[in-house]
Every structure is written in structure tokens, then in C-alpha cells.
Amino acid sequence: MRWLDSLFRRAEPSAQIAKARLKIAIQIDRSNLSPELLMMLQEDIVRAVSQRIDIDREGMKITTERGEGGQRLIADIPIKKVRAKPALGE
């Protein structure tokens, strides 16, 4: 009865497909910081954050996004563990 199913099942509306594809394409278009710059930023962040907590460097993600208030840099950093004795600088 597959033919019956396919007869009555409505295909996903194409506008929804368009919207989903556009969101992804635009997200890539908007991340106009060069990959080199993003890598450098990632190193800077790792250095700063690692002083206080253990992080999962492999699982770390740096992206850019533009919303209401302009473009923003988003760092997603998985925490391994908070150090027992935080190394407080001076």
C-alpha cells in the first residue's frame, strides 16, 4: 500500500525547505572573519581560560553569528573540570 501512502502524504512544503537552506547558507556567508583569524582567537581564548579551568580543546567551537545587536563571536567550550585550586594571578 505504499502507493496509497505516497498518494496522500503531502510532501514537505518547499518554503520550509527554502528557509532551512537559507539559514545555513547565510550563517556561512555571515562568518566573514577569516579562518586564520578565528584560529588565532581560539588559541587566545584557550590560553586565557585554561589558566582557571580544564577545558576540552578538541570539543571547542568558535563561530560567528549576526543578530539584533550586530555580529557576535560565539565560543562553545566544553569544561572538563574546574580546578581545585584556581591559579589566581596576584
Binding site: 512544503p13 518547499s14 518554503a15 520550509q16 527554502a18 528557509k19 537559507l22
Partner: peptide
Amino acid sequence: VKRGDMLATAD
């Protein structure tokens, strides 16, 4: 738009 075949204004 009504049929879901064109991006709506809100989209």
C-alpha cells in the same frame, strides 16, 4: 505562501 510553497513575510 498559503500553500507553503513560498517564503512568507515572517520567514
